[in-house]
């Protein structure tokens, strides 16, 4: 990887330059919170955001995504193309960059998901360093830094950005649109200092040691019943999760009943019918079993295949949960054998 330095005052140049051939999407303010949205005016970009309501997965795996149009009479597909315009996703935090890499394992391996892939292929990622929030615990999961998964990464040094350049495309964009200079020893020292200071700002420390073993050894722990009592099965944790990828599929017929569309929608393992099969059998009827499954899959199921847990510690589920169930609490309770 190579590095450049860019004055923070040059950021609007970069945004305007990127806008020429790309749709630029980044964090913007929405009431008290932030969302990823199209950036029309560089002044709208809020790189000082804490976190967004929904994670960037919505841009690759939309909440409602038309997969194909069909004709009923001969069960034929009329169209399954996905239109993906060139985009730049500007201002992703390391957790969200890492989350996309975890999603890639699901959608880009083995059976390649063409809808996700088309959008991923046409989207450039520009990362930005973050300041830890009170809910996030990426530091406990090794996702507090992004080493790949971006084209350019900006580390905020105050008056300037320390720019890590990962891809050819990223290098070209920098060259074309914004004035940068070579790094000096002072820049590198500042980069190291900022990184250290940021590490000290994390308030959460989640002990995930031996978690897969604990999840198996304590599969029948009363902790799950206690959590099941509290959980509302609303699925908010899944919706705001940058790594939850489960979906449902729905067919809609046109008014003439001759053609229609097949659409996938975000789903959640917390919904009561999620694991139900025909003739009335439901493999996860109780809320406790569903709460447990979410943790079991994220912290062990995914790990068993990809050697990483399916969580980046972004803290969105902790913020979204109406019952105040947080990964920190669940993992600690499991280790101790009871909810505080």
């Amino acid at each position: 990887m190579f590095f450049r330095v860019m004055d923070t005052s040059r950021l609007p140049d970069l945004v305007r330059g990127l806008s020429r051939d790309h749709e630029v999407i980044g964090p913007v303010a929405k009431e008290e919170r932030f969302v990823f949205a199209a950036i029309d005016d560089p002044a709208d970009l809020r790189l000082d955001y804490d976190t967004t309501l929904l994670p960037p997965k919505k841009l690759f795996f939309p909440p409602e995504d038309q997969m194909m149009r069909f004709r009923v009479a001969d069960n034929e597909v009329l169209d399954d193309e996905v239109f993906a315009a060139p985009r730049v996703l500007l201002g992703l935090h390391p957790c969200d960059i890492n989350a996309l890499l975890l999603m890639d394992n699901i959608f880009l391996k083995d059976y390649v998901d063409p809808y996700y892939k088309a959008r991923r292929d046409t989207t450039l990622v520009v990362g930005i360093s973050c300041v830890p929030t009170e809910d996030c615990f990426c530091n406990s999961l090794g996702t507090d830094e992004a080493h790949w998964g971006f084209d350019i990464f900006l580390t905020d040094l105050g008056d300037r950005y320390f720019v890590s350049v990962r891809s050819v495309k990223g290098a070209e964009l920098l060259d074309d649109f914004v004035e940068t200079r070579e790094i000096t020893d002072a820049d590198t020292a500042a980069f190291q200092r900022v990184t250290r200071e940021r590490k000290d700002k994390f308030t959460q420390d989640v002990d995930t040691s031996q978690l897969p073993l604990l999840l198996d050894a304590k599969f029948d722990s009363p902790v799950w019943d206690e959590l099941g009592e509290r959980c509302l099965s609303c699925g908010a944790c899944s919706m705001v999760c940058p790594t939850c990828y489960c979906f449902n599929v729905r067919d809609d017929l046109a008014p003439d009943q001759k053609t229609g569309t097949r659409t996938r929608l975000w789903d959640s393992c917390q919904f009561s019918e999620f694991a139900a099969v025909a003739h009335g059998q439901n493999f996860r009827e109780s809320r406790a079993s569903r709460v447990k499954y979410r943790y079991y899959h994220k912290q062990w199921g995914y790990l068993s295949k990809f050697e990483r847990v399916l969580c980046v510690g972004c803290g969105r589920c902790s913020t979204a949960c109406a019952a105040d169930i947080t990964p920190r609490e669940v993992i600690a309770a499991l280790a101790k054998g009871g909810v505080e």
């Binding site: 699901i106 059976y111 449902n248 599929v249 393992c269 999620f274 694991a275 499954y293 899959h297 199921g301």
Partner: peptide, 18 residues
Amino acid sequence: ERRMKCGIGKCGHCGVGH
């Protein structure tokens, strides 16, 4: 028998243990 909805390890519905 589980709820194998997508058939290709993506939709999540047929999870059984890990």
